[in-house]
C-alpha cells in the first residue's frame, strides 16, 4: 500500500513536469497554429541557465530565476527571428524549421558548455525527505514540484480567464483575423505567448535538471511525451494539457512499477518481467491510440481542429 502511494506520488510529480512542457506547446499551437519541435530545446536552455547561474552564484533560487529569464528570452528571440516567418507557412515548413532549430540549439549548447552533464545541488530548504501522514517518507523536493505544478496550473487558469492577455489569447484561438481587426497588436501578442510557453518549459527543465542531470539533448524525450499529452488532451486546451499530463505521468509510472508484478501472477515470472516491462514502456502510446479511436480531436479538443 505504501509502495502504491509512493509510486502514485512519483507519477503525479512526473505528470506535473509534463504539464509545464505541454502547456506552452498547446498555447502556442492554439494561438498561433504553430507546431514547435524546438520546445524541448527551450527546456534544455532553462536547465543550462539554472546550472550555470547556480554554479556561479551558489544560489539555486537565482538559478531558477535565470532559467525563467533565459528561456523566455531565447523564446522571444527565436520568435522574432524565425518563428514569425512561419505562421503563414504550412506545417511541413514549421516542422523542418523547428527541427533545424533543435540542431542549432543542441550543438550551440554543446559548444558553450561542453559535452559533460552538469549537476545541480538542491537548496538546503528543500533537500532531504519528509514524513507524510501515514508514515511514508518522501523527498521534499519532489513534493514541492507537485505543489508548484498545481500552483502554475491554477495561475494559468486565472491568467486565461481573468486578464486582458488571457482574453486576447482566447480570442486569438477562436478567430485570428478578428483579433487583428479589433486593433490588438497581434505581433506582440504572439511574441508574448511564445515567451510565456518558453519560460514554462525552461522552468520545467531547471526543476527536472535539479533532480536528474543537465545535459545536451535532455529536452527531446520530454518533447515527444508532451506531444502525446496534447494529442490526448486536445490541442490548444490548457485544461486538456493538465489532464493529459497527469494521465500520461500516472500511466507510465504505475505501469512500469506494477505491470510486471501483475503479469507474474498469470504467467511465468521471468517471462512476465520482460513482457511486462515491454508493454509498460508503450502503455502511454496505447492510451493515446485509444483516445484517438474514440475522440480523434482529443479529450478537450474542438472538433474542427482534428
Amino acid at each position: 500500500m505504501m509502495l502504491l502511494i509512493e509510486q502514485a506520488l512519483n507519477g503525479l510529480q512526473y505528470g506535473m513536469m509534463l504539464f509545464l512542457m505541454a502547456a506552452g506547446l498547446t498555447l502556442v499551437f492554439g494561438v498561433m497554429g504553430l507546431i514547435n519541435l524546438a520546445h524541448g530545446a527551450l527546456y534544455m536552455v532553462g536547465a543550462f541557465a539554472c546550472a550555470a547561474v547556480a554554479g556561479a552564484t551558489g544560489s539555486f533560487w537565482l538559478g531558477l530565476a535565470a532559467s525563467l529569464a533565459a528561456a523566455a528570452a531565447a523564446g522571444a528571440v527565436v520568435e522574432l527571428l524565425v518563428i514569425r516567418r512561419l505562421y503563414a507557412r504550412d506545417h511541413l515548413d514549421q516542422v523542418l524549421a523547428t527541427f533545424a532549430l533543435i540542431l542549432v540549439f543542441s550543438e550551440g549548447t554543446r559548444w558553450l558548455f561542453g559535452s559533460f552533464p552538469l549537476y545541480l545541488t538542491l537548496p538546503p530548504l528543500l533537500s532531504g525527505a519528509v514524513t507524510l501522514p501515514g508514515g511514508l517518507q518522501y523527498p521534499l523536493f519532489r513534493l514541492a514540484l507537485i505543489g508548484l505544478g498545481a500552483a502554475i496550473a491554477f495561475g494559468l487558469y486565472l491568467l486565461i480567464t481573468r486578464t486582458r492577455l488571457g482574453t486576447r489569447i482566447r480570442a486569438g484561438e477562436a478567430d485570428r483575423e478578428m483579433v487583428a481587426a479589433l486593433g490588438v497588436d497581434i505581433a506582440r501578442l504572439y511574441t508574448a505567448v511564445f515567451a510565456l510557453g518558453a519560460a514554462l518549459a525552461g522552468l520545467a527543465g531547471a526543476l527536472v535538471g535539479t533532480i536528474q542531470s543537465v545535459q545536451v539533448g535532455m529536452g527531446e524525450p520530454v518533447l515527444i511525451l508532451a506531444f502525446v499529452v496534447i494529442v490526448i488532451g486536445g490541442i490548444g486546451s490548457v485544461k486538456g494539457a493538465l489532464v493529459g499530463a497527469l494521465l500520461v505521468g500516472m500511466t507510465d509510472t504505475l505501469g512500469k512499477a506494477f505491470l510486471p508484478g501483475v503479469l507474474a501472477r498469470l504467467i511465468d515470472p521471468s517471462a512476465a518481467n520482460t513482457i511486462g516491462s515491454a508493454i509498460a514502456s508503450v502503455l502511454i502510446y496505447v492510451l493515446m491510440a485509444g483516445v484517438l479511436i474514440v475522440r480523434p480531436q482529443g479529450l478537450y479538443g474542438e472538433r474542427g481542429m482534428a
Binding site: 509502495l3 509512493e6 509510486q7 512519483n10 533532480i211 512500469k256 512499477a257
Partner: peptide, 13 residues
C-alpha cells in the same frame, strides 16, 4: 535512465 524514483520506492518497500 536519469530518474530513479520508481526504483527507490521499490527499494524502500
Amino acid at each position: 535512465q536519469t530518474d530513479y524514483a520508481a526504483e527507490i520506492a521499490q527499494i524502500r518497500a
